[in-house]
Computed example of a mutant assay.
Amino acid sequence: MRAGLTVGEFSRVTHLSAKTLRHYHDVGLLEPADVDPATGYRYYSLDQVPPAQVIRRLRGLDMPVADVKAVLAAEAVADRNKLISAHLDRLETKLVEARAAVDDLRDLLRRAPGGPVIEHRSVPAQPAIGIRAVIDRADVLSWWQGALGELNGVIGAQHLRRTGPSGGLFDSDLYEHERGEAVVFVPVEAGLRPVGRVTAFVVPPAELAIAVHPGPLNDIDLTYGDLGTYAARHEIGVEGPLREYYLRDPIETSAEAEWRTEVGWPIFRSDAT
């Protein structure tokens, strides 16, 4: 009497290759119904066809093996659906991110040659309030938004007078080593009462090559690329933190397309007076 379906037969029934079935056996996802102790041949039962079909579809959606096991082990339909829905939500998020990446690439390919207008500017020291931290590059955007909101909250609460656009200083280590110091600041007149992370800060003077980056910050690397290329080509780049001035930021509008950011690259100016 046969012990069940052979690997080849079960493979044809389920459209799972012998290699895949062997892997699922090794990781404990779909173990054979019987293994011949003498030959090591594996056999599967017809009752294993439905779970194999479920596994094939879930793995086809890139669900991790551990999560597939949890789905198969769940006794209540509601529990299974909850696990599957959570994975589908993650897939939707990845899809949105992939679409954004595709749009960014298309914009890059359509980008007009020549790049933005670049100007040289001497920036004097400027009293400000700021928040300083050592952060991971992956956290820059969320940290920046939180710091900007906190600074503006203090300005409103203490009735401080702004004297210029908000800005940021970003150490080169953030880009080279993916962790470094960042400062978000808002120029104000004196009078701050330090609170929480917010302290008095003096924005250092600098000689900068500056270009305006329009719109969202997810592709601001293009403007940095233009400035870095310009500085290297003219052999005027110097060490120092990269600088941004937020002419129109999330505090003013939630419409990212309306944001305007000046990006400053530190340079040596032989014509500075």
Rank of each mutant, 00 (worst) to 15 (best):
G4M: 02
G4Q: 00
G4P: 01
L5S: 06
T6K: 03
G8L: 04
E9C: 06
S11M: 05
S11N: 02
R12I: 11
V13E: 15
S17A: 07
T20V: 08
L21E: 03
L21T: 10
L21M: 01
L21Q: 11
R22Y: 08
H25T: 04
L30G: 07
P37W: 12
A38K: 05
T39C: 00
T39S: 15
G40C: 14
G40I: 08
Y43Q: 08
S45R: 01
L46E: 15
D47R: 14
V49C: 12
P51M: 13
I55N: 01
R56P: 07
L58A: 05
L58T: 10
G60T: 15
L61S: 14
P64Y: 04
V65H: 03
D67P: 04
A86T: 15
H87V: 09
L88S: 08
D89Y: 02
L91N: 05
L91C: 12
E92L: 12
E92G: 15
E97G: 08
A98Q: 15
A100T: 03
A100K: 15
A100M: 11
V102C: 14
D104L: 08
R110N: 13
R111H: 05
R111S: 13
R111Y: 11
P113N: 10
G115Y: 00
V117W: 05
V117Q: 11
I118T: 15
E119C: 09
E119K: 12
R121V: 13
V123H: 06
A125F: 05
A125W: 08
I129F: 10
G130K: 04
V134R: 00
R137G: 14
R137K: 14
R137A: 11
V140G: 01
S142Y: 12
W143Y: 01
Q145V: 06
G146R: 14
G149N: 08
E150S: 01
L151S: 08
G153Q: 02
G156F: 02
A157D: 14
H159I: 04
H159C: 01
L160A: 13
R162W: 06
G168H: 00
L169A: 04
D171C: 08
D173S: 04
E176L: 07
H177E: 06
E178I: 00
A182D: 10
A182G: 15
V183C: 00
V184G: 00
F185R: 00
V186L: 05
P187M: 11
V188E: 08
A190D: 06
A190Y: 09
L192S: 01
R193M: 10
R193K: 12
P194F: 07
P194G: 03
P194R: 01
G196H: 01
R197A: 09
F201K: 00
V202H: 01
P204K: 05
E207S: 10
V212M: 06
H213E: 03
H213S: 05
P216Q: 07
P216S: 10
L217Y: 12
L217S: 11
N218F: 09
I220V: 15
D221G: 09
D221L: 03
Y224D: 04
G225A: 12
D226K: 04
H234K: 08
H234L: 04
P241W: 00
L242R: 06
P250N: 02
P250W: 10
T253S: 13
T253Y: 04
S254E: 14
S254G: 09
E256A: 14
E258R: 13
W259D: 02
W259I: 06
T261R: 02
V263W: 00
G264S: 03
F268D: 11
F268N: 15
D271C: 07
D271Y: 12
A272C: 14
T273M: 13
